[in-house]
Amino acid sequence: MSTLIQEARPSTPAGPPAKGNQPTRRRRRRNVLPYVLVLPALIAELFIHIIPMGLGIWIAFLSLNQLSIRNWINADFIGFTNFLNGLNPTTAIGSQFFGTLGRTAVYTVLVLGFSWALGTAAAYFLNARFRGRAVLRTLYLLPYALPVFVSAIAFAFMFNQRDGIINKILVDDLHLFADRPFWLIGSNAFVVLVIASIWTTWPFAFLLQLAALQTVPEDVYEAASLDGAGRIRQFFDVTLPMIRASNVVMLLLMFLATFNQFTVPFVLFGPSAPSESLLISPLIYQFSFGTWNFGLGGAVSTMLLVLLFVVSLIYIRLVMPKERIRRA
């Protein structure tokens, strides 16, 4: 792990300025100051996040079920057995893991892509001054204000086979299908899951994009437009590079959150999702809480952690150095 961090060292976005342009007399103070500043975050993270995560990883090596949960500290240490069970594609448990992982990756790409595009388009267009933009800005944030629990119920209503608004429009009004299709079971369930997730996720991209666009000074546009650049070229050549710093972080964080999505499928489908739309977090829930196999749940989570860590490091390496070069 430490080598991974070492490797990542030159690539952190907020790296120090390359030139030694800091006054030397400040060096000593700076040595204490950063630690003081991060201390509150460190304490909070340590107790609420890091230690529980450590316990979650430790659990992965235990045989932890209803017989040992009460006295978990003395549960049998079984090494990598849980990992092997989770990974062995020939078993009932292992066969689910890889399929679910792949499905989750597809889901993440779709949700992330559409959310980003929608959020960026909306933020870009609402950044200009015109009547009604304050109303729209507020309206677009509303899906985000509704508890996800309620949004997911609304989607379950809408896509209900017999009574939902979607089939009413598609079948009764537009006559696109002879029979009312099912949306919440079978392979269509995945489509609904993606749509509902985008609906609850994109306002977030919109919110951050709107904030990011404010860091683009208007005179940059003016300069660009004098050069005769069109709107579209300007967006890609000027706007996007200017908000790149916050976008790379936003995409990374949204990627991680989407990959671990739990609430939307859980409310949409209940504790047991149709196998065609099972994501990794609900699968882990099923292992841990549905079948009381906490060790297995911990093992799958740990593998997920390692996987996402590697992906994140690659991403940071690939995307963030350029950022630093631009600034330096």
């Binding site: 952190t12 995560m53 979650g56 671990n260 739990f262 997920l304 952690l305």
Partner: peptide
């Protein structure tokens, strides 16, 4: 870097697993 990655890593672990710990 260790700190920033440590903080980031908390986003990589499924939230449900934090519950009981």
């Amino acid at each position: 870097r260790s700190f920033s990655l440590l903080v980031l890593s908390t986003q990589m672990f499924p939230g449900i697993l934090f519950l009981l710990p």
